[in-house]
Design a binder for these strands. Sequence first.
DNA 1: GTATTTTAACTAATCATATTAGTTTTGTCA
DNA 2: TGACAAAACTAATATGATTAGTTAAAATAC
Lengths: 208, 208
Amino acid sequence: MPRMNLDKRKILEAAGALANELSVKKLSLNALAARLGIKPPSLYNHVESLDRLRGELMAYGWETLGNEVSNALIGVSGDEAIRRACHVIYDYASRNPGVFEAMAYYNSEDGEGNSPADRLSDIVYRLCSARNVSEAQATHVLRIFRSYVEGFALLARHRSFSRDIPVRESFDLGVEFLIAGIHQLENAHCSQLKNGAEQPPEGSENHA
Amino acid sequence: MPRMNLDKRKILEAAGALANELSVKKLSLNALAARLGIKPPSLYNHVESLDRLRGELMAYGWETLGNEVSNALIGVSGDEAIRRACHVIYDYASRNPGVFEAMAYYNSEDGEGNSPADRLSDIVYRLCSARNVSEAQATHVLRIFRSYVEGFALLARHRSFSRDIPVRESFDLGVEFLIAGIHQLENAHCSQLKNGAEQPPEGSENHA
DNA sequence: GTATTTTAACTAATCATATTAGTTTTGTCA
DNA sequence: TGACAAAACTAATATGATTAGTTAAAATAC
């Protein structure tokens, strides 16, 4: 009968903490209610369903991460902006593995826009438009970065990497590969084609 | 009372088909039993638990994919081998979204080695050793490729990409970026340092 | 070919969890 | 103060995983 002062925020933070401790799939209403000091059915005063809660957790995570990225990018531009954005995302994923898992697993079919993807997208588009990279190619670049960063974070979380070689170094090197890729695109645009081995020689079907 | 002739293979194939149709998280013993024409408890004659089934599905998927990669690489070497391996993995993920999800979600904490990761690893190591790329760097390269390919496949599955620009082209371009990255490593080794913008200028903390 | 043992199906029961219905209490606001 | 809405509760239902105990089919032993 005592009245907890719960709001969406507190609930999502508790859910996020649980997800980080247990993993998303083990996030249950029982556990969440216990953590909040209420009985499971009471959660339905705040949340529509467990599935919906996971969806909101995803949106909450993206929003938080979006803010962190924005903050990290004040006064930074160019390659360095991309580099920092990637690092912030990776760090966030390391600190909040469960929430990040939710962010990766649940797509934003519901209205919740994944704003942070949007922010990362802004950065990449801006960087590309400052160079000689078409908008279509910027879209490719964006997809490539998202795939790499999210994929890496998920694999790292699942301990898919042996530990003897520093994981962080691998991540950073990959980011540099991709940044170099953008430079290639740029050069290919300026001087029609680059010298050297960077252009796919024979068997690459179709790349922008 | 009639006796279905079930074995692990048939069960995993049915489970895989269900996972592909419904997604892994909706793969239930009820649905699986119905598909196999038996009652749910009978499944326990073949499988230890639902969680364990998912684990076996993961291993089964990796094995299947491993074979496909091996077949695709007969008589192919160099960059083209990497390119093909990436494509085979991507195609597999497109054809078997549910199983691939299981492969990405469930880590191989149990004994089941993810052999196909091992096979991809072989390819990358072999390619690197044929060049001037150290083994430590080959490890980085392997992680980077896995992250990119798995990440891309998962995002594509979750429809995280807008549809108006061909997804496949994005994927291929990313592969070329990464292959170019390997070439860079190689060059950096040969002639100590490359000219141009590929080396991170100021703020990149630590990359191999 | 019959008896025995094992295997794989079954039914019935249990447990956990999400969810709904209906009730009570608490805080807010006229 | 008194009515109302929100948020907690208890009790009940549903679904799905899992266990116990049973039976029948197949394989093996004799």
